[in-house]
Nucleic acid binder design. Structure first.
Length: 308
DNA sequence: CGTATTTGACCCGCGC
DNA sequence: GCGCGGGTCAAATACG
């Protein structure tokens, strides 16, 4: 019963890959394919072109089967095995084309905001709406990290925390601090591997990353210069190494044992540094994700990008 | 003093 | 209908 990978009722797609063992992580790289969408992409950093979330809506049409789809059909029935064997094949399995491991995003996010407001109102005072609350697509990232809250370029405010059933680790709820942005994210630790942080994003940013925009300038000058912003919250830039697993509530799950790319705008706190240092060990440059985005290319040394 | 976090209470959806 | 669990609110508190 304590299925660590319960088929989340609302996951449209997700991969189940046991991964207690991180063995082979270093090998598990993204050859620019396999679809590792960058974390930032997934966050929809506008500065770099269409947000990934947007892309996600389109990609499926372009890529008959997103990696996730392909995998899911296969993996879903696979018991979560604590090893990466299947994962490796997965990554390599990519014939090098299913880069956009994305898949259909069912909900349209047109009036995302309005909906959010409705939701809020509904919460405050019951408003009868014939349509039931719509959920925005969610994207989960699994990052091996010692810190729960990883830097992702945006600023978040924690608005709640709940104990998770069958898990000793609480789940934290964050909301983008930008007024007009209703993006939310949940952070929780993997039950199967406490060192893995599962970050689930919901919604799409309607603004450029506050950190990124600044990083744009900074990074251009000094890719790794410290980026001490006023952000008090930690953030991170996980670079998804595809493999996914079941993350509660995620429509899509990206497993990422890498970590915040050394974008240089990591928080300056010791904790972050420590985390980064730790994470680096598992860091695998998300080349795929870097590919078309100028800034990232600027930030991440090409050698690193190709290295995998 | 302004902002972020904590935390208990409340609401809602869903399964039984 | 009821209970449970997830998600959110908002007052209290902490922090810089």
């Amino acid at each position: 019963m304590e299925d660590p990978n319960p088929s989340s009722s609302f996951s449209d797609h997700y991969l189940v890959s046991g991964n207690n063992s991180l063995t082979g992580l270093e090998d598990y790289t993204v050859d620019g394919q396999n679809g590792s969408l960058g974390f930032m992409e997934l966050l929809g950093v506008p500065d770099y072109g269409p947000s990934v979330l947007d892309m996600l809506q389109v990609l499926p049409n372009q890529n008959q089967n997103s990696m996730v789809d392909q995998e899911s059909s296969e993996v879903l029935n696979t018991p979560a095995t604590p090893n990466f064997s299947s994962i490796s094949s997965e990554s390599s399995g990519g014939d090098g084309q299913n880069d956009e491991q994305t898949k259909e995003v069912v909900d349209e996010e047109d009036d995302e905001e309005g909906e959010q407001k409705q939701k809020t109102q509904k919460q405050l005072k019951p408003v009868k709406t014939s349509q039931k609350r719509q959920r925005e697509p969610r994207y989960a990232f699994m990052t091996k990290s010692e810190v729960d809250h990883l830097e992702d370029g945006y600023r978040w405010r924690k608005y709640g925390q709940k104990a998770v059933k069958n898990s000793p680790f609480p789940r934290s709820y964050y909301r983008c601090t930008t007024a007009s942005c209703s993006v939310k994210k949940r952070i929780e630790r993997s039950l199967s591997d406490p060192t893995i942080v599962m970050t689930t994003y919901e919604g799409q940013h309607t603004h450029p990353s506050p950190l990124m925009s600044r990083a744009n300038t900074v990074a251009a000058l000094t890719p790794c210069s410290g980026f001490s912003t006023g952000a008090s919250t930690a953030t991170s830039i996980p670079s998804p190494l595809q493999m996914s697993l079941s993350a509660a509530g995620a429509d899509q799950v990206y497993c990422n044992y890498s970590t915040p790319l050394n974008f240089g705008f990591m928080g300056s706190t010791n904790i972050n540094r420590a985390a980064i240092a730790h994470q680096k060990r598992f860091c695998t440059p998300p080349s795929a994700f870097i590919t078309d985005y100028g800034l990232l290319q600027d930030i991440v040394p090409s050698t690193v990008r190709k290295e995998e």
